[in-house]
Write a protein that binds this DNA or RNA. Sequence first.
DNA 1: AAAGATTGACTTTTCAATCTTG
DNA 2: CAAGATTGAAAAGTCAATCTTT
Lengths: 161, 161
Amino acid sequence: VTSDPSAAAEPRWLNEQELAAWRPFSGLMLKLLSALDAQLQRDADLSFFGYLVLAGLSEAPGRTRRMSELAVLSNGSLSRLSHAVATLERRGYVQRCPSPENGRITLATLTDAGYAKLVATAPGHVEAVRSLVLDVLSESQFQQLGQLATRILESDPDACG
Amino acid sequence: VTSDPSAAAEPRWLNEQELAAWRPFSGLMLKLLSALDAQLQRDADLSFFGYLVLAGLSEAPGRTRRMSELAVLSNGSLSRLSHAVATLERRGYVQRCPSPENGRITLATLTDAGYAKLVATAPGHVEAVRSLVLDVLSESQFQQLGQLATRILESDPDACG
DNA sequence: AAAGATTGACTTTTCAATCTTG
DNA sequence: CAAGATTGAAAAGTCAATCTTT
């Protein structure tokens, strides 16, 4: 994990200060994702991940993307995406077909019904994001949160994507 | 959602600035939890939630807590906890028994094996938290992250806990 | 009847194995 | 064989219904 031999020897626990920051943050992740999932499930019978899939497709040219690209956009594994898209396809929100150019590639396309579903679902979801997070922070605090998240995501060795 | 009649009329989407902060943050939550789960699963056959349950018990007097108290500590629903503890109990890490004082209450206790498991698991988990988050930020940035999380958790209307 | 907790059925996620095309 | 994606089985999570004690 580290190349410094002296650092490897000590266990390095979290001290009190660190714990006082880590606990709320990890708790926030768990609860916030639950809350977002619950809102979408209740109001639209959609998971947060499923919502991100529809949203990711809606912004693509031709409302179409390769599965592997879509997996990255929606922050999930290819396997997870494949299952999720299978469900969305059953419900008529997405269609898959092999790429004409390269037979290994699968292209997922948002159907009109899928686009309509997204349009119907977005306001409630956005409102949840606002009331749970955005309205709670000042503008600059929210920007800070985004910057901290970006820093963590970008730095990450190989685990965070 | 809001009591201001004029605010209820407009849909209130996320603007570009807001999106630029929200996307990395939501992505971070998804990926970070996955990474923590994966490390624990791989190295200790434990979920992050399961780890929090063991940790929550380890800090309690007599290594014992009521289920409902433990659910709050580990950021999950009582139902989720009940299933998780059932698994942990099967593996010998936890024991449940009805409270002698109040028969409705179930007390969960960390066994010696459970404590040993936690001690064996903690260093790897802490190292993951360090390398993924702590080492990436300055001390003050990490404190900021904790403060922002705390603010969100405390303000929350009723959804975050 | 309410509080505290568990259960069962269903859905989602994960991991490893597999399939298919280049 | 590697890249891109899917599949199946097992584990975890969610919701609603249920059970028990007060």
